[in-house]
Design a protein around this nucleic acid. Sequence first.
DNA 1: TATAGTGTAATAGTTAACTAGTACAATAGG
DNA 2: CCTATTGTACTAGTTAACTATTACACTATA
Lengths: 125, 125
Amino acid sequence: MKFDDKVPIYYQIKQYIYQEILINHFQPGTKIPPVRQLAIDLTVNVNTIQRALSELIDEEILISKRGKGNFVTTDLQILNQLKENIVEEKLEIMYTQLKNLQISSDEMVQYLSDYIKKREENDHE
Amino acid sequence: MKFDDKVPIYYQIKQYIYQEILINHFQPGTKIPPVRQLAIDLTVNVNTIQRALSELIDEEILISKRGKGNFVTTDLQILNQLKENIVEEKLEIMYTQLKNLQISSDEMVQYLSDYIKKREENDHE
DNA sequence: TATAGTGTAATAGTTAACTAGTACAATAGG
DNA sequence: CCTATTGTACTAGTTAACTATTACACTATA
């Protein structure tokens, strides 16, 4: 996995696991891969995996069962809230950054539409 | 100035200066504040300012004149390109992240519109 | 010419993130 | 009961980012 060297790896792993859960690659109630396997898959140290997981456990996104594995919560309320928070966070970051460049809301929507159009034209090649 | 502790400070300063230039707080051809003053204003060390500035100088956004100060380029071509690049970069980051959550382009535009609407309702209070 | 203001360089020390390695605790299965 | 698998904890060492400090080079001006 490729990481952005401007952001801590453990934090990017945390985001990655959020993503895998929210798109149901890791399903509610099921076991996620063992820490040692994740370390291999993501080519990082076990400690770095553990740091990401321990935060997810604190957040009750994951439930740790010693000797068994780490399991995705079955609390759909938590997961729905998580998705909402993440989407809103991403929107807020972009909104704030473009506002700082004195780009209006209307321009922002237009820029996004244009960007998507451009992307999708290229993706169809 | 408040910094995101997940991203290097020098990098955030660099982004800040981009912004100040693009919204004409620092105008083409004019001198930006001395490094020692910037260090005070942003409450960081001079070395950290210098690190950000040296990258901007490499990019020819700024021109350094020893003993005089650092000056914003007068090359509007470079500045226009810079703005385009930054806007596109911000759009791309959000697009990619929301796509990773299996959010469609149409949903994305809708989410942004909703978010803006919500923001502006609150901002008017 | 002396001094203040400017950019630049270099050293030393601190901290957070990461890696490597080892060990330990709990569980499952033969 | 033994062994493999799993999560967890701990120590040690490296590196990048940051701070603090000093020094130096160039410019303007009194």
